[in-house]
Design a protein around this nucleic acid. Structure first.
Length: 257
DNA sequence: ATGGTAGCTACGCTA
């Protein structure tokens, strides 16, 4: 089973890019983030035409996630538990062929020192609690998405310059590791322990893409039952170089299921 | 050099 995650930065602005990539890469499941539209206006038909069942969770203007699958999806969950008053559309989860799969968009958290950063930390605590429960099910679990977390200094072009950023500061990285320590495997680093410049995001500004000033912030976390079946994890830089590109590029895992 | 770009929305916010 091939699963892709991609922060598309507006599904409507990106429709030709996303459709074209899905036709070529043909993942069984595509996890999208930052669809930036309301659920009802998600262009579901454009993806159904490619053979996908569509489950979008959106809101006006910001955020929004989607789970596209070539196989039936059951037991859909459309919000991350733990803070019922949280209205931001950042989580969708369902079961595909016995695998529990989630598309998540973790809050950015900048600027640190505003309410945005404690919200990010609370969201990570909620994800940790939920991820712990998922492990107890014993099924393979794949949590993919834009984590807005740079796991280590090898995952950013200028670690010193990013030390106080919400994506890289110690408190953020420690909390990310707390989730891993529950028993999850970060797929890319597990298969490519020494690969440098393996970024998944390049800012639109300051020529970040041509200068390869990137970050690796889009990740797959796998439960032991999923990690045991992991054969491939790859970043496809192709879409970032296209016209009208998203600032993120897709990451893919393949599981032998 | 205190900028730069992109998307949503209709101005400033978010990233």
């Amino acid at each position: 089973m091939r699963i892709a995650t991609w922060n598309v930065n507006s599904v409507k602005a990106r429709l030709p890019n996303v459709q074209g990539w899905l036709e070529t890469a043909s993942p069984d499941v595509a996890l999208l983030q930052e669809i930036k539209c309301e659920t009802a206006s998600f262009p579901a038909k454009d993806f159904e035409a490619l053979g996908y069942e569509v489950h979008a969770v959106g809101q006006k203007s910001y955020n929004g996630v989607a789970l596209l699958s070539k196989h039936p999806v059951t037991d859909l969950l459309t919000r991350l538990p733990g803070e019922p008053e949280d209205e931001q559309a950042r989580y969708v989860e369902g079961t595909v062929q016995g695998v529990r799969v989630a598309s998540l968009y973790l809050p950015n958290g900048n600027p640190v020192g505003t309410e945005k950063y404690p919200y990010k930390l609370r969201w990570m605590d909620r994800l940790k609690a939920h991820a712990k429960g998922l492990l107890e099910s014993g099924q393979p679990v794949v949590l993919g998405g834009d984590y807005n977390v740079i796991p280590g200094p090898e995952d950013v072009y200028d670690p010193k310059g990013w030390t106080e950023d919400a994506l890289f500061r110690q408190e953020t990285r420690l909390k990310f590791r707390e989730i891993l320590h529950l028993g999850y495997t970060e797929a890319f680093r597990a298969l490519h322990p020494d690969m440098a410049h393996a970024y998944s995001f390049w800012d639109y500004q300051a020529g970040a893409w041509p200068r390869d000033m990137g970050l690796r912030i889009d990740h797959f976390l796998l439960s032991p039952q999923a990690a045991d079946r992991l054969t491939v994890c790859a970043i496809d830089r192709g879409p970032r170089g296209q016209e009208k590109a998203s600032d993120h590029t897709p990451v893919i895992v393949e599981l032998d299921v």
